[in-house]
Design a protein around this nucleic acid. Sequence first.
RNA 1: GCCGGCAUAGCUCAGUUGGCUAGAGCAGCUGAUUUGUAAUCAGCAGGCCCGGGGUUCAAAUCCUCGUGCCGGCACCA
Length: 605
Amino acid sequence: MLENIAIAIKKGEQIYDLQTAHALGIEGESVHYDNSPDALEVIRHSTAHLMAQAIKKLYPEAKFFVGPTVKEGFYYDFKVEHEIGEGDLKRIEKTMLELAKNKDEIVRIELPRKEVEAKFAGDHLKQAVMSRIVDEKLTVYKQGEFEDLCRGPHLPNTKFVRFFKLTKIAGAYLGGDSNNEMLTRIYGIAFADKESLVNYITMMEEAEKRDHRKLGNELKLFTFREEVGAGFPIWLPAGARLRSRLEQLLYKAHRKRGYEPVRGPEMLRSDLWKVSGHYQNYGENMYFTHIDELEFGVKPMNCVGHIKMYEEDLRSYRDLPIKYFEYGVVHRHEMTGALHGLFRVREFTQDDAHIFCTADQIESQVMEVMDFVDRIMKSFGFQYNMMLSTRPEKAVGEDAVWEKATTALRNAMERNGLVYKVDEGGGAFYGPKIDIKITDAIGREWQCGTVQLDFNLPERFALEYTGEENNKIQPVMIHRAILGSFERFIGILTEHYAGEFPLFVAPTQVAIVPIAESHHAYAKAIAARCIDEGIDTEIYAKNDSLNKRIRTAEKSKVPMLIVLGDEEVANNSVAVRDRRERTQYNMSLDAFITLIKEKMSEIHF
RNA sequence: GCCGGCAUAGCUCAGUUGGCUAGAGCAGCUGAUUUGUAAUCAGCAGGCCCGGGGUUCAAAUCCUCGUGCCGGCACCA
């Protein structure tokens, strides 16, 4: 019944609430009370207001900043004298429901700026809001006793606010500026019907089950310890096996594309970081130490080491492009509040490479990297999109050089028909970049790989190669990482696959369950043969019931499970159990091993 | 770094207004059982209640300072 009710008017791209449409005589298409993006915009905005009304009722001294809708619902930023925590959300929700029962009309009042300024004279937050608006006429919305400066659009009546949930409470800086005071922010979500709300909550719970911190712990992939230090991951055997699989696959892929493996030192003299500009531009993220009298910086990036390798010989145009790659361990001082499982750590390993090439080779090199990226991301079933980031405020080099580099990246992308968005000011301090953002199985976006074009470091280190006419020319550097870091990427993979890794990266390929002690020897023989074939196994031979051991093996999320009894020993076969299908079938050991090897070799980058 | 919350056994969690020897399930160990496809039974062991300082006759519980974690903000692979 509710879905037939119009709650707003849409004209062109603009949504007007009924109050505004009426006041200004606007006509257009009706927006009905449903879960369309337009309707949710209005519903969520009004839910935010109802929340503010409830907060005002519970905390009369409350002052409000802004309460917009966002991709996932809405929030309202406000300030109260009381301390307010997660436990208070329920109370606020309850008050909201009570208020909605009043079925208050939501009234739009248009007033001259001066009057509104006077109305909110004692409210520094509202003054802050108004300072950002240039209009001379402002609107105030009123429902019951509560009124708030707002441009809308809003529902006609608070009775339409029914299916909502307050989800998070957190601090947020006024205007998103860390120099400003901190306000309290409450996030919430709202829908036009109960079912959608329930679905949303279920989705959230699904995401929680995939949390790599939880799965990493359960599957014993990695751990963190307070006494070791925040942000320093410890890779346990299962996680290290998974990681090693990735490393090996990628090693081959790099060699195939003409990259040379190299290895730079963990610490380099600070003088070098001064030449590169890291000392001045990235120093606050770096760790420094002294050896005798000299200051050293622990590397936050691998480029300087690779530059030294380039300098190791005289280079000719015939040598270019030179491609160095390294699983480079870097340390960065991340702020405590930024640390988050494997996604943000202070020590991580990049699948890093630097391509030294001529200006003419930029486009083909960038495209080759893009192709590499495409190959890898598709293997994991990731969708991805790209973002071009331009000169940041803190940067080295001439504007003209930046311009040239940015144009080169643009051209490379456009000539090859690649679609990208632009992030103005998001580049690295030494050059513009293209970031690769992947979308995982449940639709979340993650920043992984990056391709950065750099004219500055070659300049600063006076790199050169000999040209065709025996002249000295400065090479161009392309910094690139594809996974980004093994830490983050494995975190993403864990959530993407919900811990059920495909055969080619799984820590263990085959779980072996011998039925009785008399089958242990056969199990061990299979395990030994598997190692020879590059397959990792785990034998479940504890003194537990067969059912228990199968259950334990299943819960470990190993892709293949085989059961061995008299029959299998006699026939040199295995009983394969499919975890997903819960079916089973027998095959010869040889056929089984061939099958696993085939499945594993299907993936190569 | 900022705001708010949290920290009890290897893991997940109980533990009342401060009050006896801090509990449970899973995991671990020992024994019995030797199993044909998702939890066999019994017993045992396991704790500086995150760390330092304080309040109190008495602290896992209250206060305080650290450390770490969680949710956001700000910052970024």
